[in-house]
């Protein structure tokens, strides 16, 4: 299982990307999607997800709405227009960082 410290820095990017691809999702669904996509290698544990969702919501990148599903209230998150624009730059930023990290840690041969 990957370290939570490593995930923390990219959690917002992961959430934004998932919501870009899935239109709207609720908290538990996001944890399961991350777990499923990474075959259980990355798990959003120890309550890291909800503070990140609430922060993104308060920053205006996400919007929420509630639905009654199976007699319980479910809160869905979706990207705002601002969030839609932010996701592209966040992904570029993450990709750039991964490339630099590769160079620093010599995980793959340099391109030059």
């Amino acid at each position: 299982m990957s370290s939570n410290q490593l995930i923390k820095g990219t959690l917002q990017t992961i959430i934004l990307k998932l919501l870009k691809d899935n239109k709207q999702m609720y908290g538990y669904e996001i944890t399961q999607k991350v777990k499923g996509t990474t075959s259980g290698e990355i798990m959003l544990t120890e309550g890291a997800l909800y503070p990140a969702l609430h922060k993104l919501e308060s920053d205006g990148l996400l919007v929420t709405h509630t639905e009654i599903v199976d007699n319980r209230v479910r809160k869905y998150y979706a990207l705002t227009e601002k969030g839609g624009k932010e996701v592209t730059s966040k992904i570029e930023e993450a990709q750039n960082f991964i490339e630099q990290l590769n160079l620093l840690l010599n995980l793959k041969p340099g391109l030059q």
């Binding site: 944890t31 544990t45 120890e46 909800y50």
Partner: peptide
Amino acid sequence: KVDFGGQDNLVDLEKRFKSAASHEIRS
């Protein structure tokens, strides 16, 4: 325990949510 890091973290989660909600509503 696994998803939220235990009961103490639940209380902390609510505090952080309150702070984020306050900022969000005002904005």
